[in-house]
Structure formats: structure tokens, C-alpha cells
């Protein structure tokens, strides 16, 4: 068999089979992709990531725990700033407790401690607690958006969205 004829044969042999396999693979990949997408629900029933947290005047200096259980947020007012602090420990994701007597957050899992500012000072936590985006709406109420996080060690606490001056 000559070289050219062989390759021709092969091309002929390949053409329909190749088209078949490529389209079949593409279709299967498409269907599997849909199955992959299927596992991401389009709506969920967890607490909302955004909520309205009253007006700044509602808060006294110090740590406010009213949104902790529903939304996982401490509102902290100190040094003329109002911030929304995440209540997820930066070590392994436990929920620290606020100890008003000792003026610190203490994580029950591995003993990490945080100042009221959110900065870690003891235990295994590698970095300070995170802040959430906090903004004032035109009508003066506070909106807290948990989808946006600000991390101290990245210098993001200087971002004007991470606090409100009061």
C-alpha cells in the first residue's frame, strides 16, 4: 500500500468517526457541565448577606451583640468609628465569645483571643477578625454587606467602606 493511499484511507476512516466522537464528547461534556451547574442552587434560604442594621445612634460605645446570632456580626463603636466585625475566628472558623469583663473576644475552640478592635493577641489565630462592608443609606440607616470583607493584614481597614465615622 502506498503512503498516500493509506493516509487517504485513514482520513476517510477518521472523518465520520472523528466527527461522531468529537460531537459525542462535546455533548456529553455539555450534559455533565449541566449536572455540575445543577449542584449550585439559584436561591437559598440562609440568612441574607445584606441587612439593614438600624441607625448609628442605636449603638453605644463598645461591642454590640444584637446581630451576632442572626447574621454573625458584631457592631463595634470605638474611637469614633463604627465597624461591622465578623464573628468567625480566623483560625478554624469557630465562633468566639465576647467577654465583657476581660474586654476581649475569646474563641472556645483553640483559645485565640482578640482585642475589641478585632486584632488577635493570643492563641493560634493567625490574623485579626475580618470587617464587613458597612455603608450609610441615604435615609441614614446602616447597611451591612457581608459579601465584601476587609482584612487588617492587607491594609484594607483603611478602606472607607470598612468603617463609618461617627
Amino acid at each position: 500500500m502506498s503512503e498516500s493511499k493509506k493516509s487517504l484511507n485513514r482520513r476517510e476512516f477518521f472523518s465520520f468517526l472523528a466527527v461522531g466522537w468529537i460531537t459525542f464528547t462535546a455533548a456529553t461534556a455539555g450534559l455533565l457541565g449541566l449536572v455540575f451547574r445543577f449542584l449550585y442552587p439559584n436561591v437559598n434560604f440562609e440568612p441574607e448577606m445584606e441587612f439593614i442594621a438600624g441607625i448609628p445612634g442605636d449603638y453605644d460605645n463598645g461591642v454590640d451583640e444584637r446581630w451576632k446570632n442572626g447574621f454573625g456580626v458584631w457592631i463595634i463603636k470605638r474611637e469614633g468609628k463604627l465597624v461591622a466585625l465578623s464573628n468567625i475566628c480566623t483560625h478554624l472558623g469557630c465562633i468566639p465569645n465576647w467577654l465583657p469583663g476581660e474586654l476581649k473576644f475569646k474563641c472556645p475552640c483553640h483559645g485565640s483571643g482578640f482585642y475589641p478592635s478585632g486584632i488577635n493577641f493570643e492563641g493560634p489565630a493567625p490574623r485579626p477578625l475580618e470587617r464587613f462592608k458597612i455603608t450609610t443609606l441615604p435615609d441614614g440607616r446602616l447597611k451591612i454587606d457581608k459579601t465584601k470583607k476587609y482584612r487588617y493584614e492587607k491594609g484594607q481597614w483603611n478602606n472607607p467602606d470598612s468603617y463609618i465615622e461617627v
Partner: peptide, 12 residues
């Protein structure tokens, strides 16, 4: 209803 209305791949 969810399967019909908002779950992806609505013809499952």
C-alpha cells in the same frame, strides 16, 4: 416547584 422554577437544569 423549586425543581421547576429555579433549580438549574430545570428539566431534570
Amino acid at each position: 416547584v423549586a425543581l421547576r422554577e429555579h433549580v438549574p437544569l430545570g428539566i431534570m
